[in-house]
Write a protein that binds this DNA or RNA. Structure first.
Length: 196
DNA sequence: CGGATGATCAACT
DNA sequence: GTTGATCATCCGC
């Protein structure tokens, strides 16, 4: 019997949020049997004007960001989409922006209404990802380290590319978006990424 | 390719 | 009343 992949622990997340955002690239995330490898993340913290936790202001929406690390902060955006973050304690969080789908492909295609054989965009973007995995506000505050979630460490070191975050009007210049170099499952390309 | 636009609503001012 | 950590679609090059 094969040794199961090591699950991440809460201490993994109680670190500098940019360290965590990079370390999560290549980790495996699933919800209720659907998910894949994380290939794209962004970091947010209370000193960041683009963050929902900016200035340490506690509101009904962002309360989970100030709770324990390793939990899901899920919020509703643009009247249509949900976005999933991993909390890192103290108002810090990592936005999960894209997955390379590995398990539950049929379920995900069904939820995304994608009849296509091309899965490159199935989980490419925070809104698509939540739609594919079936994540909504009902999961806000749940631990990502226990069922129905599972989050396991990557097996091999991944080459990381960095760039500015997406969809912001404040903090645009910060290079706090991280991606797996050469991945075909990113929401958008990285400028510095040459070739594959 | 890249840029503009509409959909649709909870949180915030 | 305005804004937004998005996406699909349309339009022009």
């Amino acid at each position: 019997m094969a040794i199961p992949p090591a699950p991440l622990t809460q201490a993994f997340f109680e670190r500098d949020v940019d360290v965590v955002a990079r370390a999560l690239i290549g980790a495996e995330l699933t919800f209720d049997g659907a998910g894949g490898r994380i290939v794209e993340t962004e970091s947010y913290d209370p000193a960041d004007p683009a963050s929902h936790s900016y200035g340490e202001r506690l509101t009904p929406r962002n309360r989970v960001m100030f709770g324990p690390a390793g939990h899901a902060y899920v919020y509703f955006i643009y009247g249509m989409y949900w976005c999933l973050n991993v909390t890192c304690g103290k108002g810090r969080a990592v936005l999960i922006r894209a997955l390379e789908p590995t398990v539950g492909l049929d379920e995900m295609r069904k939820r995304r209404k994608s009849a296509s054989d091309d899965d490159r965009r199935l989980c490419a973007g925070p809104g698509r990802l939540c739609q594919a995995l079936g994540i909504t506000g009902a999961q806000d505050g749940l631990s990502l380290l226990a069922p129905p979630f599972a989050l396991t460490r990557r097996r091999a070191r991944a080459a990381i590319v960095t760039g500015p975050r997406i969809g912001l009007t404040k903090g645009v210049e910060a290079m706090r978006r991280y991606g797996m170099k050469g991945s075909a499952y990113l929401s958008k390309g990285f400028k510095n990424e040459s070739g594959a």
